[in-house]
Simulated assay, not measured.
Amino acid sequence: MLWPATHLDFDGINDYVNCGNAPAVQISGNAITLEARVKFKSFAGSFNDGSIINKEQNSPDYGYMLRAGSSGIVNFNLGNGWWNELSSPSYSVTTGVWHHIAATYDGSTMKIYVDGVLVASQVRANIYFSSTNQNLMIGSWSNIGRYLNAAVDEVRVWNVSRTAAEIQHYMNCELSNPTSQTGLVAYYQFNQGIDSADNTALTTLADSSATAYTATLNNFTLNGTTSNWLSGSSVVTGSTCSILSSNDFAFNFENVKVYPNPSSGIFQLQIQEEVQLEVYDLMGKMVLQKNVQAGAAFFDLSQYASGVYILKATNVFGDTIVSKIVKE
């Protein structure tokens, strides 16, 4: 049976998508958001080499980029004559699973989110980053190279800074009415082709934003199970989210901080309001439950096996957020 493809596989050797240099993506100023869903097959030797979204000029350094590489580090860069750089902790992303990665700048603070969780943040006030005439690339940098060995879906470029609530709400679905989304200047949904089939005729990538600038695929085999249009992304055609309401902004991941993460057992929780805390293993078994008052608190998973756990925090109004934590 033939299945519609849901994403594009990059081979890490020479595959890349050239998105051109439409005026809309020549972003300059003090606000930007970059987003993509990525499943890494392996990491480049350095995060400098794993280009996800790249519009980069060097000497002088202008443009913007989102990268990931060695030890699961995510890197976000803005150029205003030199690079203003923010990197996540090691192992923020792993291979073999889909991650949503986002980076934002609001004129004050650079931030990186992985799966809706804020993993890196640094105050960088008044970076007025500059545009460049280099083309926007997916899976490579502007001089061709630094290739990405990963599956990619849902690439979004904004000339506004998206909030944590917006990132969390829309990270696992398609944007509805993309041509009317404020600040959305490039949106590649990757809803083309047939899974693992002969897609050699499909050498372009549609832009669903109002910019509607068609990108060009370069060096993809477009036949078989690698370097081709494939299925398997959880975001499929038509999986749109509801419109975000004002209530969705009240309680989000920026209200709750957990560190260190990963931890050998003792986690510290920093919370801005009273919550009920629950921790589950990946089989759905609850391993911890406690009420936590606003401020700082600790919880201990030392007695449990190493691995990924799910943290659930519910405030007094019944609003809930869910996050991943790692017990080493």
Rank of each mutant, 00 (worst) to 15 (best):
V160Q: 15
I112N: 05
A120K: 14
P178T: 09
A215S: 02
N159I: 11
A212C: 02
L205H: 03
Y128C: 11
N149F: 14
A215K: 01
A165H: 05
T204V: 06
N143W: 13
S121F: 08
N133R: 06
A165F: 00
L205V: 08
M171D: 04
S142T: 13
R124N: 12
I167G: 03
E154R: 14
S208D: 02
N199Y: 01
S208T: 06
T216F: 00
L175H: 06
N133S: 14
Y187F: 04
E154G: 14
G139C: 09
Y113P: 03
T132D: 04
N135V: 07
R162H: 06
D198V: 00
T182R: 10
A206G: 04
N143M: 13
N199G: 06
M137L: 05
N172A: 12
N135F: 09
I112P: 03
Q122G: 13
V119M: 05
Y170W: 12
A206W: 08
M110D: 01
S208K: 09
A206R: 10
D207Q: 05
C173E: 01
A186C: 06
G183T: 04
D153I: 13
V119N: 10
V123Y: 12
W158S: 05
G193E: 07
V185M: 08
E174F: 02
A197W: 07
A186M: 02
D198F: 00
N172H: 13
T204L: 01
M137N: 11
R162E: 13
Y213H: 06
T179G: 08
A125I: 10
S161E: 12
L148P: 00
N191W: 05
Y188M: 01
N149S: 15
R146K: 15
Y147I: 11
N133E: 08
I127C: 07
F129H: 00
A206D: 07
S121K: 15
A165I: 06
P178F: 04
S131A: 07
N172F: 09
H169C: 06
N159E: 13
I144R: 15
E174D: 13
D195P: 00
N199K: 06
L148W: 09
S121L: 03
Q134W: 03
S208R: 10
V119L: 08
V157D: 03
V123R: 15
L217T: 01
Y188S: 03
Y213T: 07
Y187A: 03
